[in-house]
């Protein structure tokens, strides 16, 4: 041996890497996305390929030509953003809208803030909201595209939350509420809402892999259940119930995979609880009293803004400083 390697301790590492973490998130989202492909067919495959490719390409192009820095696409974070974006779109979305969404997510929400780790807003949600405002018609066209398996009778028009938002409880009851929701299979709505059960499965995988912690989703779901439970108990003729609200409008997709985004959520467990409660309160206020039927995206974006303040208020418990 000619030369000795010298560096300060520690001399070994756990082997964790950003790429492995992002890969785990991709794996966790795969079951729900696969079911979506079966149900929504070729148009979903097209959206998936276009959305993910566009996100990765935009990140590559921006780092190479605008920032002049080494490429960061290997960390897979752009791919995660792409997949989440696609899962937040209706299957009937034209492919070019996905490209615009990808440009907004990567170019505006992520890279203009300084890239991975610096962004204030979750890029996929920011893009979804941008698209919702820019292309309201296409973004709320819930016509189920033809899939590879027969998925009950094709639903067109509005989601149940949409029906409720338009016509209140009466219209919702006419549409079959409250028996319309099933744990493992549900169509109508964004692609990622297809199966609460498979989303839960993916989330449990992330918990087992210690990629995310349970506090944020738990406090979101708990808050939604509490608020909806109270309102429903007080006046079931006007307000929708807890299970309905938890199972619809991308609440689980948001709670499990978007609100838990490391970069845009609080660092401490208690901060996470406050953040989760905030999301739960805002989403229910939007659904009951606001003009948008779903509200999860807005709730997360609004609470994203509060994260720097929450981080100031909540710190970890330090040894010997009680």
């Amino acid at each position: 041996m000619e030369k000795l390697l010298i560096s300060p301790s520690p001399h070994v590492r756990s082997g964790a890497s950003t790429q492995k973490i992002m890969r785990d998130v991709l794996i966790a989202l795969t079951p729900a996305e696969l079911l979506a492909i079966l149900v929504y067919g070729w148009s979903e495959i097209l959206l998936l390929v276009v959305g993910v490719t566009a996100c990765v390409l935009f990140e590559w192009a921006i780092t190479k030509w605008m920032l002049g820095k080494p490429s960061t696409i290997g960390d897979l974070s752009a791919a995660v953003t792409g997949l989440l974006l696609v899962m937040n779109l209706p299957s009937s979305t034209p492919w070019w809208i996905a490209v615009i969404g990808a440009l907004f997510a990567i170019g505006v929400a992520k890279m203009s803030f300084g890239g991975l780790g610096q962004n204030l807003f979750n890029p996929a949600i920011a893009a979804r909201v941008f698209l919702l405002i820019s292309f309201p018609q296409q973004m709320t066209d819930w016509t189920a595209t033809p899939g590879f398996i027969h998925a009950t009778d094709a639903i067109s028009g509005a989601t149940l939350l949409g029906v409720y938002g338009e016509g209140g409880m009466e219209a919702l009851t006419a549409a079959g509420y409250p028996t319309n929701h099933r744990l493992f299979f549900d169509i109508g709505g964004s692609v990622g809402e297809i199966s609460a059960g498979l989303l839960l499965l993916g989330f449990i995988y992330l918990l087992c892999r210690k990629v995310v912690k349970i506090w944020i989703p738990l406090s979101i779901i708990g808050t939604v259940a509490l608020i909806a439970g109270i309102f429903y108990t007080v006046n079931p003729a006007v307000y929708t119930g807890a299970v309905f609200n938890i199972m619809s409008g991308g609440l689980l997709l948001g709670a499990f995979f978007m609100a838990t985004d490391y970069v845009t959520s609080p660092m401490s467990a208690w901060g996470g609880v406050v953040y989760g409660i905030g999301i739960g309160v805002i989403v229910m206020m939007i659904r009951y009293f606001g003009s948008y039927p779903e509200g999860m995206s807005f709730a997360i974006l609004i609470m994203n803004c509060a994260v720097p303040l929450i981080n100031r208020a909540f710190h970890s418990r330090k040894y010997g400083r009680a």
Binding site: L5, S7, H11, V12, R13, S17, T18, I21, T72, D75, S77, G115, L116, G117, Q118, Y262, V263, M267
Partner: peptide
């Protein structure tokens, strides 16, 4: 085991 890898962005995990 011991060669350090290049530092990348903090992902605030």
């Amino acid at each position: 085991d011991t060669v350090r890898k290049e530092a990348t962005a903090c992902i605030r995990c």
